Simulated assay, not measured.
Amino acid sequence: MSSDLDNFVGLSSALTGIPTDRLAPTIDQVGLPSTFLAFITPRITPEVLNTLLTQYATLAADHIPPDQIAKAVLMDGSRPAVTQTAQAARSIMKLWLLGVWYQPYATGSYKSTDSTVVSDQAYIQSWAWKIAQAHPMGYSEMFFGYWNTTPPSLEDYTGVPANDQGASS
């Protein structure tokens, strides 16, 4: 039986298209998955989170492909779903990509207009930077003059192979 953290990482992978071993590497010095899960639980409510993770676990146990899991969570037929679970899933996608939590709906003391940078590491390690093959202003792990060399391929950053139909690396 998978834990909530495992299901959260699996769901996040299905939603973003980023492999689970990239979202939650074996050696993880930052620990974003557990930070994100703890952060969002009170904001979407444990009930909505449990529904979302159970939906993911059920579909994954049935060997449904990740893109179909994402479609089941996010869509209502050919239209975007407006359920709280779908809204929470969209905010989870933004959280991984931007490091910012956009409150999907009002609950408790949280308003639907709230947005919060979860932590400095969430912002620095957000996937938008990796996908853009860039880094946040004022922070870089690269050496002086790195901009003078050809960057690694997008596949090196994301683990997702480039293909003819998408952006090439």
Score class of each variant (00 low, 15 high):
137 M>K: 07
34 S>H: 10
134 A>N: 15
3 S>I: 09
32 L>W: 10
109 S>R: 13
79 R>I: 03
82 V>N: 07
90 R>T: 10
161 P>G: 04
69 I>V: 15
22 R>Y: 14
77 G>T: 06
49 L>N: 05
95 L>Y: 03
91 S>I: 02
31 G>Y: 03
30 V>C: 05
46 P>F: 06
82 V>T: 15
83 T>C: 07
102 Y>N: 02
51 T>Q: 15
17 G>A: 08
58 T>Q: 09
4 D>F: 04
129 W>F: 14
125 Q>G: 04
164 D>V: 08
143 F>S: 11
46 P>E: 13
38 A>P: 02
70 A>E: 11
120 D>H: 08
137 M>V: 10
86 A>K: 06
155 E>W: 12
30 V>N: 05
71 K>S: 14
35 T>C: 05
52 L>A: 07
136 P>M: 02
98 L>W: 06
1 M>A: 14
127 W>R: 04
105 Y>I: 03
29 Q>G: 06
146 Y>Q: 00
47 E>Y: 08
153 S>P: 12
51 T>R: 12
15 L>N: 13
49 L>H: 02
166 G>N: 12
125 Q>M: 15
43 R>D: 07
143 F>E: 13
14 A>F: 03
132 A>F: 04
67 D>M: 05
57 A>R: 04
164 D>P: 01
135 H>N: 14
5 L>A: 07
27 I>R: 08
163 N>I: 10
45 T>H: 02
2 S>W: 13
37 L>N: 04
168 S>R: 12
51 T>H: 10
57 A>E: 05
21 D>I: 09
147 W>D: 12
140 S>W: 08
139 Y>Q: 10
65 P>A: 08
42 P>K: 06
142 M>D: 13
94 K>P: 01
147 W>H: 11
114 D>N: 08
55 Q>C: 02
40 I>K: 04
36 F>W: 07
160 V>K: 05
159 G>N: 02
63 H>E: 03
130 K>N: 08
120 D>W: 09
142 M>V: 07
5 L>Q: 09
165 Q>R: 10
107 T>P: 03
90 R>V: 01
58 T>I: 04
6 D>Q: 15
58 T>S: 04
164 D>N: 09
135 H>W: 11
11 L>R: 02
108 G>N: 14
9 V>N: 09
65 P>I: 07
